[in-house]
């Protein structure tokens, strides 16, 4: 960490100059993006400053309760995001439950395993390690699950006649929905597969870049990044599988019927 260069707030403001130029261009060319740009950047500034203050406080407190509460708040926001990104949702509590439950289970399992066996900070739940790790895993699992569930619900709704035709011929609910569940799994897995394939060639991952900027040896930073990518890939895969399986289970019943009545109508 010897080569770490601290930034002043003045440096940060200077970096925003280019964004301000974009806003000016938008006004000049009548692109009408300036308002959205302004709102998004103000939101970013407020959110990041707040999280900086909160994290500083949580790190200083080193309390397992506060760390767990922080993780729970992150999970609630991510579950709500999964819900919001689906065009057709399961009705009732299942709309949150299936995606959110799968995400929390996969995220917690992988994070705890990584903290206790690989990273091994002292104590193992140390918020400085646990929260950023949990956040990265949660964010990617969230993206995968929301894509997977969105695809599943939309496809099953569209292919109702084809699914029921198979049921009428004596297929089980799993057999009749397998092609559509497979499609949902594929779209849930796609972002993490793309990210793994492109990383290091097309893009330098943010976490690794951050470590290098703060003076960590690139080889060490790569090791960390590999660890994180494997964890993210594992958690995303597990989460998407659980969520799509849960979705199929909820969209059918014990008499192997297709239950589209458990799917919300779109507006």
């Amino acid at each position: 960490m010897s080569q770490y260069i601290a930034l002043s707030y003045w440096d940060v403001v200077l970096a925003a100059v280019f964004l301000a130029i974009n806003g000016g261009l938008s006004l000049w060319l009548d692109l009408r993006l300036e308002k959205q740009l302004l709102i998004a950047s103000v939101r970013m500034v407020v959110q990041l400053l707040l999280i900086g203050i909160i994290l500083k406080w949580v790190f200083a407190a080193t309390s397992p309760t506060i760390t767990a509460a922080m993780a729970a708040i992150m999970a609630v926001f991510a579950a709500r995001e999964i819900w919001a990104r689906q065009e057709r949702r399961l009705t009732g509590v299942w709309g949150y439950g299936v995606g959110g439950g799968a995400m929390v289970f996969a995220g917690v399992l992988v994070t705890v395993l990584a903290l206790t066996t690989q990273v091994q900070p002292d104590p193992w739940w140390s918020p400085r390690y646990a929260l950023p790790l949990f956040g990265m895993i949660l964010g990617n699992t969230m993206t995968g699950i929301s894509l997977g569930l969105d695809t599943l619900n939309a496809t099953v709704h569209r292919e109702r006649v084809a699914i029921e035709a198979q049921l009428c011929l004596g297929a089980t609910k799993w057999q009749s929905m397998a092609p559509f569940a497979r499609r949902a799994l594929r779209s849930g897995f796609m972002p993490i597969i793309n990210a793994m394939a492109a990383t290091g060639v097309v893009s330098l991952p943010g976490m690794m870049t951050g470590q290098i900027l703060s003076g960590v040896d690139p080889e060490e930073a790569v090791k960390y990044q590999l660890l994180v990518m494997f964890l993210i890939g594992g958690a995303t895969g597990l989460g998407v599988l659980l969520a799509v399986g849960g979705g199929v289970w909820r969209l059918s019943d014990e008499r192997h019927r297709l239950r589209l009545d458990r799917l919300q109508q779109t507006r």
């Binding site: 292919e159 109702r160 006649v161 084809a162 699914i163 035709a165 198979q166 009428c168 011929l169 092609p179």
Partner: peptide
């Protein structure tokens, strides 16, 4: 399979 239904709209997969 015992009570085979032919719906008005046939499905294909």
């Amino acid at each position: 399979q015992m009570a085979g239904l032919l719906p008005a709209e046939t499905g294909w997969w």
